[in-house]
Design a binder for these strands. Structure first.
Lengths: 205, 205
DNA sequence: GTTTGTGAAACCTTTCACAGCA
DNA sequence: TGCTGTGAAAGGTTTCACAAAC
C-alpha cells in the first residue's frame, strides 16, 4: 500500500485484504504500537482516519526485524539451494545469503550466481567472520542433523530447515521448518475434511 | 516406530518425541479414534499398555488421507519444480505427480525424470483424464493466479502454492502455501524475540 | 504398578460492543 | 459520520487430576 501511494488504511480494509476481521487487525496492531519494539506512544492509528501506511509499515518492519541486516549461510546446493540463490526477493527484507557450502567435491569451487561453493570445512570460519546469524539447511535428511550441529557450534541464532525432520539444536537457537511432506499431508487432510463438512482450512506458510 | 518393530507406544513416549505433553497426545488421539474417519470403537489405546503402533499408524493414515491414492499435476519446472520431481519420498504418502507443465517453449517436450514437460494447453485435459485432485504451483508470482484459475476450472480440490502470494480460488478448493519469505520473517522474528525474553517459538511446517 | 480417557479448571484467542476521538 | 482502542463476553485449547482398565 505504501508502494501504491496510499496515505492511510483502515483496519477494515486490511482485514478484508487478509481475510480476517477488523477487530483482530486492531488488537494485533495495538500490540505492535505498545508492547513491541520500544515504541513510546500507544497509538499507531488515528480515530476516524485509520493507520498511516508509512508509519505502520515501519513499525511492522521493526517488529519483524526486516529493518535490520541479516547475513545467512546456505548449506546444500541441490535444487532447493539453487532455487533460493536464484530467487532475488530477499534484499528488501534485510536478508542476504553471503556464502554457500556443500560436501560434494564436484560442486565445490563452482560459481552459482555471484557466490562460489565452499567446502564444509570453511563453514565455522565464514559464519564467524560474516557474523551470520541465520543458517539455511538444504541438504538430504541424512546430513541435516550434522549440519545443524556445526551451525549451532559456530554460533548461528536461527536455522531455516528444509530437511523433512525435527532438528535438535542448542538452547537459544530458533528453528523454522519448511517441510513439503507436512504441507502435502495438511492439504490432503483439508481436502478430505471439506468433502465431509464443507469448511476449508486456510493455508499456513 | 512401526518400522522399528515397536509393538506399542505410550502417550508419554509420543509426547516426548514430539515435544508436547502426554495429555495433548491423548486428547488428540481420542478424537482420531472417535469422531474421525468412521471408526466404530472409541478406544484406540489400551489402559496400562499404550497404543498399538500398527493400529494407530493405520488410523492416522486414514485421518490424514495417506492411505488413499492422490494424483497431482505440477506446473512450473524451474528449480522448485525440479526439486519436487527429484525428491522421491512421496509414494508412501499415497501421493504421485502424474504430469508436469510449463509455458516456456524451450522446456516443453524435455524429459525430467520419467515425465515429459507438457504445454499449458494440455492442463485441463490431463487433470480430467487423470482425475488429479491436487495442483502444485511452482511458477513465478506473476503467473501464479492465472495457473490457479485454470486448475480450479479443471476441477482440482486442493492447491499447493509455492508462489509468494495469496491465491483467489473457487469455493471448495483448499490452498496450502509454502512461502519462503514468510518463513524467513517468522525466523527473524523468533530470533529477535528470543534475544529479549528467552523464549523460543517452535517451527511450523 | 502403569496408562488411558475424560470431566473440570486454567489459560489463551477471537468476537462483540461501545466510549472516545477526529 | 467514521474509525480506533479496549473492556467484557464468547469460544476454543491446554493442563490438571483422577476413576477405570489392564
Amino acid at each position: 500500500m505504501v508502494a501504491q501511494g496510499h496515505q492511510t488504511v483502515s483496519s477494515k480494509a486490511l482485514g478484508a485484504a487478509l481475510g480476517v476481521s477488523s477487530d483482530k487487525v486492531r488488537k494485533d496492531l495495538a500490540w505492535a504500537g505498545g508492547a513491541a519494539s520500544g515504541a513510546r506512544s500507544n497509538h499507531v492509528g488515528q480515530s476516524g482516519v485509520g493507520y498511516d501506511c508509512a508509519t505502520l509499515h515501519e513499525r511492522i518492519r521493526s517488529v519483524v526485524g526486516t529493518n535490520r541486516q541479516w547475513a545467512a549461510v546456505l548449506v546444500g546446493c541441490g535444487n532447493i539451494g539453487r532455487a533460493l540463490l536464484a530467487y532475488g526477493g530477499f534484499e528488501h527484507q534485510g536478508f542476504e545469503i553471503v556464502a554457500v557450502f556443500d560436501s560434494n567435491r564436484k560442486v565445490i569451487g563452482k560459481k552459482i550466481g555471484s557466490l562460489e561453493v565452499a567446502p564444509m570445512s570453511d563453514l565455522r570460519r565464514t559464519i564467524r567472520s560474516h557474523q551470520a546469524s541465520i543458517g539455511i539447511i538444504a541438504v538430504p535428511r541424512s546430513a541435516a542433523q550434522s549440519v545443524a550441529g556445526q551451525m549451532c557450534a559456530a554460533g548461528v541464532r536461527g536455522i531455516l530447515n528444509f530437511a523433512p525432520m525435527r532438528l535438535a539444536v542448542s538452547q537459544g537457537v530458533c528453528v523454522t521448518n519448511i517441510d513439503v511432506n507436512v504441507a502435502i499431508e495438511q492439504l490432503m487432510m483439508d481436502v478430505s475434511l471439506i468433502g465431509q463438512s464443507g469448511r476449508a482450512g486456510r493455508g499456513g506458510s
